[in-house]
């Protein structure tokens, strides 16, 4: 196949768009697509200070790399889940990217809460690890924004994440979650930072190709706790549909954005409360995280961050890390 733009040998075919592109034109295509999403949905506006939630995977490292390349200076925040042979490798990849971008990373170690990794903590909380992880991540990432003055939390969620979540919510008619998914979740002053997803309309396949073509060193191993997750089953089903009928996922998600979300956002705004302890959004009077802190008998002071700042390290130190 030849690149549709320049006629050089293509490196990737994009069936949903009936095209194929060479490396430079594919990189430019994905960056333009992301920039269009940022502008169309006003994800990052003048004067805003973004921070990227990084995990060491292809999506978060790519969005961090791309934003800085496109002129959106963004630092990173990482949550060390204390997973053996996984979390430390992830952080090493993040440090490498931080060095390249010369950007700061705030990290929170989950062992600050109970001296245990996410699996041990999940057992104490009688939750599955993914549920405990999601709850802690939401809280900690919101906290870093409010504490350090970042206005916008950027995540690497892609169209496959959104389509699979939407598929699961439709399948079980979880109406309370339908309408919550969006490219941007607006801030609630003092309570919740703005959350944005610049890769909302980009596929995992395209992002992986972007990472490979830009030599982004990301962790390829899966989180050991994701084995058998329903989301992966939904992704598999959607990918089978996509293979047979290219463009299915984008139609599904775009259709949702167009026809469903407008009617739901106002309802959601009106039904949320704020935690009486920390002030973050919750459905009850106290948020789940504050309940956990109470149960573990620890104060909010335990939620503090380590900072990795390559700009203050000299060259020798950077090489050693």
């Amino acid at each position: 196949m030849k690149c549709r733009v320049c006629g050089e040998p293509a490196v990737i075919s994009l069936k949903a768009y009936s095209t194929a592109l060479c490396a430079p034109h594919f990189i430019s295509f994905l960056e333009k697509r992301t920039l269009n999403t940022i502008n169309k949905y006003r994800l990052i506006e003048n004067g805003e200070k973004p921070i990227v939630a990084v995990s060491g995977g292809k999506d978060s490292l790519s969005v961090w790399f791309m934003l800085n390349k496109l002129g959106y200076a963004a630092d990173g925040v990482y949550i060390n889940l204390g997973i053996e042979n996984y979390s430390d490798i992830s952080f090493a990849k993040i440090e490498k990217m931080a060095d390249l971008l010369m950007k700061k990373v705030y990290s929170f170690d989950i062992k600050r809460l109970s001296d245990k990794g996410i699996d041990g903590l999940a057992k104490i909380l009688k939750r599955v690890p993914c549920s405990a992880c999601g709850m802690i991540k939401r809280y900690v990432m919101n906290r870093v924004c409010i504490e350090y003055g970042y206005t916008t939390l950027v995540t690497g969620h892609n169209i496959d994440d959104e389509a699979s979540a939407l598929f699961g919510n439709v399948l079980y008619w979880k109406e309370e979650y339908l309408g919550k998914k969006n490219v941007v979740l607006e801030a609630r002053h003092g309570h919740l930072s703005k959350k944005v997803k610049p890769f909302f309309l980009c596929s995992e396949r395209d992002i992986a190709a972007y990472a490979i073509l830009n030599n982004i060193d990301y962790i390829r191993e899966e989180c050991p706790f994701s084995v058998g997750a329903k989301t992966l089953i939904y992704k598999d089903m959607l990918n089978r549909l996509e293979q047979m009928s290219p463009g299915t996922k984008i139609q599904f998600v775009k259709g949702y954005l167009k026809s469903f979300i407008k009617n739901r956002q106002e309802d959601i705004k009106n039904t949320e409360n704020f935690c009486s302890k920390c002030g973050y959004p919750t459905y009850g009077s106290i948020c789940n995280m504050c309940r956990v802190l109470e149960r573990l008998n620890i104060g909010e002071g335990h939620i503090c961050f380590d900072e990795y700042d390559p700009s203050v390290l000299d060259t020798t130190e950077r090489l050693m890390t």
């Binding site: 196949m1 293509a10 490196v11 990737i12 075919s13 194929a20 490396a23 995977g57 292809k58 999506d59 993914c130 496959d160 994440d161 699979s164 995992e204 396949r205 992002i207 992986a208 190709a209 490979i212 073509l213 390829r220 899966e222 989180c223 706790f225 994701s226 084995v227 997750a229 989301t231 992966l232 992704k235 598999d236 990918n239």
Partner: peptide, 23 residues
């Protein structure tokens, strides 16, 4: 990276990189 119409020859090293992640 190659497109699916690429013809792999003897001596080539072909790798399929999984792109799906998350849980």
């Amino acid at each position: 990276l190659v497109t699916e119409d690429y013809r792999a020859e003897k001596g080539d090293s072909v790798k399929f990189i999984k792109v799906v992640s998350g849980g």
